[in-house]
């Protein structure tokens, strides 16, 4: 397993390099730091000249790319163009905050989706099956930002009606809370519900479909013909096979979940990557945006690596020496 992970990490290097090319040249194609800075008032010609010197903006684009790459790998993404502030401290704090949300909501989403998917497949065409199907269709059809707003409105309404603060609709923590842990949870619940809802909708459809397919497979029939209890047939023989496609989807969706986090964090004012991204976008901070894009690329590559390891554990056919 160790060698497999090492090899898989090696394979990730070209993907990562390709991602740097996509991010840098893609960004350069749509804008450049100077024209963004010119949009801001009160920036002197001297400041702009300093930025050009510092970021080598008078050199050919390929050379700029080289300098940027050096910053990415050896200077923690370097500094912002305008304020010359290091990017990484703020970004890393944002990553930590986002990962709290994303990990918890993905964990909830995967577990719930597997449970829902398995039961819908076992009880195909039952009321339960139709109910989960309907709920997941809503999941595909409800705009995530609107869903977040509704939750926010409901929580606020509840507070106004009862005077009791059940969930917070803003930020990450209160000022001087009595119990910091409970306070954090009160802040996290609504963003997590928002983020996991869409994922549950998608994953549970997958789980249901793959479970149905597996339940009609020959080897499940063999297990039944062997005299294995139906519960064991489902939980042992079928589930392990049916999990494989869901792992793929969860890994492939990681980028989409981070995209969802952008919206969710903006609405709930959660100081994470999403909010960080929108702020950088509004300020036109090109280098900060590129750093952000690279971080998400690494996160998605890592998510796929984790998925590959899980495959190997689930399916001996893709087991790696």
């Amino acid at each position: 397993m160790g060698t497999f992970i090492a090899r898989r990490l090696l394979y990730s290097i070209p993907v990562l390099l390709a991602a740097t090319i996509l991010v840098f040249f893609g960004m350069t194609a749509v804008t450049d730091p100077i024209s963004q800075i010119r949009l801001q008032p009160n920036v002197s010609q001297q400041t702009i000249q300093n930025i050009i010197d510092r970021k080598h903006l008078d050199e050919p684009v390929v050379v700029q790319y080289g300098f940027w790459l050096r910053d990415v790998f050896f200077n923690q993404f370097g500094n912002t163009a305008l304020g010359d502030q290091p990017i990484w401290p703020d970004l890393s704090r944002a990553i930590g905050n986002t990962m709290q949300l994303v990990f918890i909501s993905e964990l909830i989403a995967v577990v719930l989706a597997v449970v829902l998917g398995v039961f819908s497949a076992k009880k195909q065409y039952s009321f339960f099956d139709y109910a989960t199907t309907t709920i997941s269709f809503f999941g595909f059809s409800v705009p995530i930002f609107w869903f977040a707003l509704i939750l926010q409105a409901l929580a606020t309404w509840f507070f106004l009606e009862t005077g009791f603060r059940l969930f917070y609709t803003f930020g990450q923590s209160s000022f001087a809370p009595e119990n910091a842990f409970i306070d954090r949870i009160q802040h996290m619940v609504l963003p997590i519900v928002t983020l996991s809802y869409v994922s549950i909708a998608t994953y549970s459809r997958y789980q249901r479909a793959s479970m149905l397919e597996v339940l009609h497979s020959d080897y499940v029939r063999t297990a039944r013909a062997k005299g294995v209890k139906e519960r064991v047939v489902t939980m042992k023989h079928a589930l392990r096979n049916a999990l494989i496609p869901v792992v793929t989807i969860a890994a492939l969706s990681f980028g989409a979940v981070l995209g969802g986090a952008v919206i969710t964090e903006t609405i709930f004012a959660w100081p994470g990557m999403g909010k960080f991204f929108i702020d950088a976008l509004i300020r036109g901070e090109v280098y900060t945006l590129m750093a952000w894009l690279m971080v998400t690329a690494v996160a998605v590559i890592l998510a796929n690596l984790v998925a590959d390891i899980v495959y190997g554990w689930l399916d001996p056919r893709i087991r790696y020496d």
């Binding site: 497979s217 020959d218 080897y219 029939r221 063999t222 023989h237 399916d315 001996p316």
Partner: peptide, 13 residues
């Protein structure tokens, strides 16, 4: 019972 297709009748995992 013994089934027709031994390729698919055994659980791959």
């Amino acid at each position: 019972m013994i089934f027709q297709d031994p390729m698919t009748s055994l659980n791959p995992v």
